[in-house]
């Protein structure tokens, strides 16, 4: 029997909790189309910047044990073309869209916000945490709770869309950053971005495999870390959390829901299980609900919050 995987997110009903995260399949409207056809509940664009970026040269990705290292370098067609792709998708689909944007200055985030206001996107994600452009931009903004507060505050004052902050796991105290975003009025959090960064070496060439030398770690290897950080953050804030990091099977999604997330990002799992991984995970979620005698997704309980 099919159980309801429906869930609510910031006032919108989503057919299932699976999110296409930023940087996965989201370059063109056709990438959204095929992901939706394969069962994703809500899609997110590549992180868009004010001007187009070609990203790093390759290799931009390499497999490591239980995960992938990637360093795309924020390739994207720029905010104007990126929003056009979203609008093209929206012409034929009711599926909610999160537009993700990246900048390094508050004023640039403001400019991106004003452009996003005029699009058909449903939510705005602020990518404060790309680990792969360190050479260019330095330490990610999400490392500074003051910076996060300032950016979220400015964007919230000007955004017509609910605002989501994407947090980095590569900081000393993610909970205080999450609290700073919450006190600045953020509507939701998205966590975690890729971990590290790390590296891999070609031993015959004696060279780093990735062009950018370092790349963010994703995949099953990071799931325990993601669960821990989401749980700690869930215990300390009251805004909804989009959880992601290594979710590959339905049971991983269940763990993440129990840790405090309301929506679940699935990206690297496409590599392991194919583009239909969303449909597969939804089926596994359905099986879990049946086996556990839950009527619907919303019945899956959360862990008791950690004591503050």
């Amino acid at each position: 029997m099919l159980k309801s995987l429906e869930t609510e997110f910031l006032g919108k009903t989503i057919s299932n909790p699976l999110v296409l995260p930023a940087g996965i399949m989201g370059m063109a409207f056709s990438g959204f189309n095929i992901s939706v056809e394969n069962g994703v509940g809500i899609v997110m664009s590549k992180s868009l910047t004010l001007v187009p970026r070609k990203g790093h040269e390759g290799p931009v990705i390499t497999e490591v044990q239980n995960g992938l290292l990637n360093s795309m370098g924020l390739c994207n067609p720029g905010i104007n073309d990126g929003l056009y792709e979203i609008d093209q998708f929206k012409e034929r689909s009711q599926i909610p869209v999160i537009v993700s944007v990246f900048a390094t200055k508050t004023n640039d985030f403001l400019k991106l916000t004003l452009k996003a206001n005029r699009s058909q996107a449903d939510f705005l994600e602020l990518n404060l945490s790309c680990p792969n452009v360190f050479d260019e931009f330095g330490i990610p903004l999400a490392a500074s709770k003051d910076k996060v507060y300032e950016i979220v505050k400015t964007v919230k004052q000007n955004s017509k869309l609910p605002v989501i902050a994407k947090l980095s796991p590569n900081v000393h105290d993610i909970v205080s950053v999450a609290k700073a975003a919450e006190s600045a009025g953020v509507d939701a959090l998205c966590m975690i971005n890729t971990v590290g960064p790390g590296m891999a070496i070609d031993t015959k060439m004696v060279k780093p495999i990735l062009f950018n030398t370092f790349g963010g770690l994703s995949g099953p290897a990071i799931k325990p870390l993601a669960l821990k950080l989401i749980y700690e953050t869930y215990s300390a804030v009251n805004v909804p959390i989009i959880g992601m990091g290594g979710v590959t099977y339905g049971i991983d999604a269940v763990e993440m829901l129990m840790s405090g997330a309301v929506l679940i990002g699935v990206g690297t799992a496409i590599y392991y299980r194919g583009i239909d991984v969303f449909a597969k995970i939804n089926k596994e979620l359905n099986n879990f609900l049946q086996e556990s005698d839950y009527q619907q997704l919303k019945d899956i309980p959360k862990l008791e919050k950690l004591d503050g």
């Binding site: 940087g23 996965i24 399949m25 989201g26 370059m27 063109a28 409207f29 056709s30 990438g31 959204f32 189309n33 095929i34 992901s35 056809e37 590549k46 990203g55 390759g58 931009v60 990705i61 992938l68 990637n70 795309m72 390739c75 990206g267 690297t268 496409i270 590599y271 194919g274 583009i275």
Partner: peptide, 22 residues
């Protein structure tokens, strides 16, 4: 093509979104 393993979305073809690398 960028990742060539079907994740990054650089080579999806409009409008159906098949990935040319996969």
């Amino acid at each position: 093509m960028k990742c060539a393993v079907g994740i990054c979305g650089s080579c999806t073809l409009d409008p159906i979104g098949i990935r040319l690398c996969m």
